[in-house]
C-alpha cells in the first residue's frame, strides 16, 4: 500500500441528489468511486491524485436495468455481474455480455461497473466497443438537470470525455433495434482471463440479398479512444462480401486506427490483427456463423 489513508477523504451520501450537489459545490474536486476496481488500484500504487472521493457504490438510483419498449436503460452503477445475469441484456446485447465476461475475474465483475468503465475511459476497456456498436446514448445528470448525449463521440482524447466536472452518468441507453443483427466480438489479450486487451472488436451486421445492408464495427486498444470504424463501415455498405472486399476492408480499417507500441503489444501487431478480425467478422457475417 503506497498511499496513506489519512490523506484521503471519502464520503458516502445517501442518494444521487446529495452526490450531484456535492459535485456542484466543488466542481472537479470530488472523484466518484463506484466498485473501486480502477480507483483503488491507483490508490494502492500511490498514484491517485484526487484526495476527495465520493462513493456512488450500490446506489439504488444507479443500479437498475429498465426495459422500455424501444430501449434498455442500464444504470451506470450496474456491475458486470448484473449485466451477465440480466435476461434481456443477455438475449439482446450479446456483445455487452461477452465484454462483461472478459472484464477481470468474477470478483472484479462483482464490483466493476459499466458507468465506471465509461468514465475511466481506458481505450482498452472491453465494454466500450460494444457500447459503440450498439450506438449507446448516455444520460448525464447534474444539479443543473439532465442531458442525453450520444456515446459515439463521448471520448474526446486519451482518458478525456465530454462529462462536465459536476456531472455523473446515470444511465446507459441501448436501443433494441439491433436485436436481430448478427453479432461478432473478439478480445485479443495476453491470456484467456484477466487480461487487458491488445485488441478488442465488437461488431454488428445485417445482410440483404447477399449484400451488406448495415454494419457497425467498433474497436478498442488501437487508438487513444475506443473507435467506431465509420469509414470501413461505409466502404462495405451495399457490397457483396468477397475476397476483394475483405482486402479493402482490412486496408481501410488499418488506416482508421492509431495503435501504438506499449508494454502490452506493438503497433504493427495491433494493426494487422484489427485487419484480420474485421475480415473475420465479414466472413462470418456472410456465412452467418454464430460467433459468440
Amino acid at each position: 500500500m503506497r498511499s496513506d489513508p489519512a490523506d484521503y477523504e471519502l464520503v458516502a451520501p445517501a442518494n444521487l441528489q446529495e452526490i450531484v450537489a456535492l459535485l456542484a459545490e466543488e466542481p472537479g474536486t470530488w472523484l466518484p468511486i463506484a466498485g473501486g476496481t480502477d480507483v483503488m488500484v491507483q490508490y494502492a500504487a500511490g498514484k491517485l491524485s484526487a484526495r476527495k472521493l465520493v462513493s456512488i457504490w450500490n446506489l439504488p438510483e444507479l443500479r437498475h436495468i429498465e426495459v422500455l419498449a424501444d430501449e434498455v436503460r442500464i444504470g451506470a452503477g450496474c456491475t458486470y455481474t448484473d449485466l451477465r445475469e440480466n435476461e434481456t441484456v443477455g438475449r439482446e446485447f450479446p456483445l455487452l455480455v461477452s465484454a462483461a465476461s472478459w472484464t477481470g475475474g468474477i470478483a472484479n465483475q462483482n464490483r466493476g461497473t459499466l458507468g465506471g468503465n465509461v468514465v475511466n475511459a481506458s481505450p482498452a476497456a472491453d465494454s466500450l466497443p460494444a457500447l459503440l456498436a450498439y450506438e449507446a446514448e448516455l444520460i448525464l445528470v447534474s444539479i443543473r438537470g439532465e442531458r442525453r448525449v450520444p456515446y459515439l463521440d463521448f471520448h474526446t482524447d486519451y482518458k478525456k470525455t465530454k462529462l462536465a466536472s459536476d456531472e455523473l452518468i446515470r444511465d446507459i441507453c441501448l436501443s433494441r433495434r439491433f436485436s436481430e443483427y448478427f453479432s461478432y466480438t473478439r478480445k485479443v489479450g495476453a491470456r484467456q482471463a484477466q487480461a487487458i486487451s491488445k485488441v478488442c472488436v465488437a461488431a454488428l451486421g445485417r445482410l440483404d440479398g447477399g449484400k451488406v445492408k448495415d454494419v457497425r464495427i467498433a474497436v478498442g486498444s488501437v487508438a487513444p479512444v475506443p473507435l467506431r470504424l465509420l469509414e470501413t463501415e461505409r466502404i462495405v455498405q451495399g457490397k457483396a462480401i468477397e475476397p476483394s472486399l475483405l482486402l479493402l476492408a482490412k486496408k481501410i480499417a488499418v488506416a482508421e486506427i492509431r495503435p501504438i507500441d506499449d508494454i502490452r503489444s506493438t503497433m504493427r501487431y495491433r494493426s494487422t490483427v484489427v485487419g484480420n478480425l474485421v475480415a473475420e467478422f465479414l466472413e462470418k457475417l456472410r456465412a452467418n456463423e454464430p460467433a459468440i
Partner: peptide, 11 residues
C-alpha cells in the same frame, strides 16, 4: 501482475 502475464485457470 497485470502486466507480467502468468497463466490463469482459464489458460
Amino acid at each position: 501482475m497485470t502486466n507480467y502475464i502468468m497463466p490463469t485457470s482459464a489458460d
